[in-house]
Design a protein around this nucleic acid. Sequence first.
DNA 1: CTTTAATATCCGTATTTCCGAATATACGAA
DNA 2: TTCGTATATTCGGAAATACGGATATTAAAG
Lengths: 106, 106
Amino acid sequence: MLTPTQLCKCLGDDLRLSLVCLLHGQEEVCVCDLVDALEAPQSTVSRHLAQLRQCQLVVARRQGTWMHYRINPELPDWAQQTLASLVPPACQALSLTLPVSACCEN
Amino acid sequence: MLTPTQLCKCLGDDLRLSLVCLLHGQEEVCVCDLVDALEAPQSTVSRHLAQLRQCQLVVARRQGTWMHYRINPELPDWAQQTLASLVPPACQALSLTLPVSACCEN
DNA sequence: CTTTAATATCCGTATTTCCGAATATACGAA
DNA sequence: TTCGTATATTCGGAAATACGGATATTAAAG
């Protein structure tokens, strides 16, 4: 189960916080779009996504070869509220452009 | 200025999150009480407090040889809201007993 | 000035975290 | 099958972080 310390560890890294911000804005985003948006190596993005998955912060859905990620909709209330407080200022601080443009159909 | 990533880094450690929880409950707490409450070496507590101070998460007031810490009352709204969401579940997850009993007379 | 108490800082070591190229895996199409 | 695309995992090294005993600093008291 997700603890406050774990959540903060997850969010205490620019790249992971960026991922969470990008996902927070919309239903689902696929990995290739995240790689594009962050201009980071695919292995780096994938590794951080795995970490977020392990904490249950995000969930993944496979569709063919694509993986679609989204914020875990079953997050406890305190975690959802934390994200709600943190994401808007984080988007600004990290200069993220939302929403992510979709490169992969669907 | 405090960024969301920095705040999360600060809170992403059991001992620092415990400190923040203990402080969030009351006006001011002095270092000796924090050391008592956490049963951690004084140098460790002091080092983490320095880190929290550096991020402006807490402020200190000297009174004689004692130092009294409190949550920075001028924290931006998003940070205050984050603490409000995070502290209650953190207190529980970290099994913290509040309030801290005062060993040093004011 | 000396001593004592409270707190901060230093510093060497141990641990954790991060990185990204290389490689592996999963899947659809031919 | 075999190939190509999307994504995940591995792995060795670099960088950041945590630890706590020893020491320094600060201030009150004698």
